[in-house]
């Protein structure tokens, strides 16, 4: 049984259908990478899973439970964490306040907090600083830290490397590897180098449909397929 299964999802924004037919099984454990060109429907897929946009028709099942029409907050309570493309960091709140909001009880588990500090030392350094003052990379760290400050079943991450310096991207990759040892990550990426170092399974979305599904190793080996599905000139 897969952790998350999307079936025949069609999601429209206004009158414009972004997803036409997305069917996808995400197995438990490790990093599952969803690749695709700009505008292919990657972000929409994640938003549809979180209940921020509603697929119709189509369904989202989590551990064999239908969550298609559940409220976003209730989906989150099932153990979902969402790191949106714009990071969704609360600029007027301090780093600490941002993280405390991500805990369900309003208290930190000291072990988890230590782990976050170890993964992202900058956050400890700027603990009491308001988040708008952080750099782009630090904001991204905070957004990711929020998703792991409590145990989660599934973390949805939307293009975490966008606009980040190479050194920060490396640190992010290390963090994801460690996180994926205990949680499932569904990663949306355009940065193929980053994605291929992390992903175990993968899929490519194109024009609102799943165009390819397989293991990352096979996809990396098949240059022709990559060219066809990902290159802009195709």
């Amino acid at each position: 049984m897969s952790l998350l299964s999307l079936s025949a999802m069609k999601t429209s924004i206004g009158q414009y259908a972004v997803l036409h037919d997305v069917t996808l099984e995400v197995p438990e454990g490790g990093v599952f990478v969803l690749l695709g060109r700009n505008g292919a429907g990657k972000t929409t897929t994640l938003r549809s899973i979180m209940g921020l946009w509603r697929p119709s028709p189509g369904s989202v099942r989590f551990r064999d439970r239908d969550i298609t029409t559940m409220h976003t907050a209730d989906i989150a309570r099932l153990g979902f964490a969402y790191v949106p493309e714009n990071m969704g960091v609360f600029g007027g709140l301090t780093v600490e306040e941002n993280l405390i909001l991500a805990t369900s009880k309003g208290k930190f588990d000291p072990v988890r907090l230590k782990r976050v500090y170890a993964l992202f030392p900058a956050l400890e350094k700027f603990w009491t600083k308001q988040a708008w003052a952080l750099s782009g990379g630090q904001k991204q760290m905070l957004a990711v830290a929020r998703s792991i400050i409590e145990p989660r079943e599934l973390i949805l991450i939307d293009e975490p490397t966008k606009g980040l310096a190479p050194s920060i991207i490396d640190a992010m990759a290390d963090a994801f590897r460690e996180i994926a040892a205990t949680t499932t990550i569904l990663l949306v990426e355009q940065n193929f180098e980053f994605a291929k170092a992390l992903g175990r399974d993968m899929a490519v979305i194109d024009d609102g449909r799943i165009a390819h599904r397989g293991s990352m190793a096979d996809f990396v080996a098949d240059k022709q397929l990559q060219d066809r599905l990902l290159s802009l000139s195709a």
Binding site: L52, A73, A76, R77, G88, F90, L93, E97, L101, S104
Partner: peptide
């Protein structure tokens, strides 16, 4: 207070507060 924190966060980005599991 935590309620106040939720309100301030919700004013900034309601969607994200909901994605953290709170019914705004």
């Amino acid at each position: 207070t935590r309620i106040g924190l939720l309100i301030r966060a919700g004013v900034e980005n309601r969607e994200m507060v909901e994605a953290l599991g709170f019914r705004v």
